[in-house]
């Protein structure tokens, strides 16, 4: 088989993957109100986006939620990964299996179960319920990411540190954490994105007191076309690109 057939195939699939995104970006600068025809360059949708007070508020809410969810899940996830990696304990396989099942189970199953729980214990739906839910579905991803790094980790390194006089705590601070830092960062970013993107779980566990961006978008796109969504989508795309590049930059820098 020749060389260019696979490459042509890859190119076509990538083109199809990026076509909708390209259309979205281009149409975000469209001045036409109908949304389907090109009516000239304009920034009016960006303008109307930022003049929409509820929208800006939802953006901030989502951002805070994603920051909090990513941070909490990285903290708990990293500790869990460490415990799974270092200790032998009863129920280790069960814990592993449970995390795997949480990762694999359809979001909607998690969503309704959490809704049932929150209503049962009388937790008001809002920031706290969203945070608990988001941390729960981010957790296994962080654990997996950190575990992957730890499995490539030389078992003797912690022992070498102990041997040279470091206490368990000092060893964790000076050896373990620096070595798994890239995984922590990757896990945090993954959690951040998962949280920012989530529609299914949030639909069930958010309340009117704390409106977040995906739900706001959802209510806009369900009916008809809203050109503001183009602008918002473009902004989100740029935002995630910046985040991704930032993480790549930090990772390559930490390797040096």
């Amino acid at each position: 088989m020749n060389r260019w057939l696979p490459r042509a195939y890859l190119s076509i699939v990538y083109a199809l993957l990026y076509l909708p995104i390209l259309v979205l970006v281009v149409f975000s600068f469209n001045s036409s109100r109908t949304g389907y025809r090109w009516g000239g360059l304009s920034l009016q949708w960006y303008e109307s986006l930022f003049n929409n007070h509820a929208m800006v508020q939802a953006m901030w809410n989502s951002l805070w939620l994603a920051l909090a969810a990513a941070t909490v899940s990285t903290l708990i996830g990293a500790l869990t990964a460490l415990a799974l990696h270092r200790y032998r304990f009863r129920g280790k396989r069960v814990l592993n299996g449970m995390l795997f099942v949480v990762m694999m189970s359809p979001e909607i199953v998690l969503a309704i179960s959490l809704l049932a729980l929150f209503l049962l214990i009388g937790l008001q739906l809002g920031f706290v319920s969203l945070l608990l839910a988001h941390v729960t579905f981010c957790l296994p991803f962080v654990v997996i990411t950190v575990m992957a790094r730890l499995s490539g980790f030389d078992e003797r390194l912690p022992e070498a540190a102990r041997d040279l006089g470091a206490s368990d705590f000092t060893m964790t601070r000076t050896v373990l954490i620096p070595v798994i830092m890239p995984a922590l960062l990757a896990g945090w970013l993954l959690g951040f994105t998962l949280s920012l993107d989530d529609v299914v779980v949030s639909t069930f566990v958010s309340g009117p007191s704390y409106e977040i961006l995906p739900l706001r978008i959802y209510s806009m796109v369900r009916v008809g076309l809203k050109p503001e969504v183009n602008a918002l989508g473009t902004l989100l795309l740029v935002f995630s690109l910046v985040m991704l590049m930032l993480s790549q930059w930090i990772l390559t820098r930490s390797k040096r």
Binding site: L10, V23, I217, L244
Partner: peptide, 29 residues
């Protein structure tokens, strides 16, 4: 290329679904 494959994944899935709507609509692209 893996990076390029993941970029759309990092973009809001609702927004991407909506972008398909732009393409597929009766008077769409």
């Amino acid at each position: 290329l893996i990076f390029l494959l993941i970029v759309p994944f990092w973009t809001n899935s609702l927004v991407r679904t909506y972008a398909l709507k732009l393409l597929l609509a009766t008077n769409g692209l």
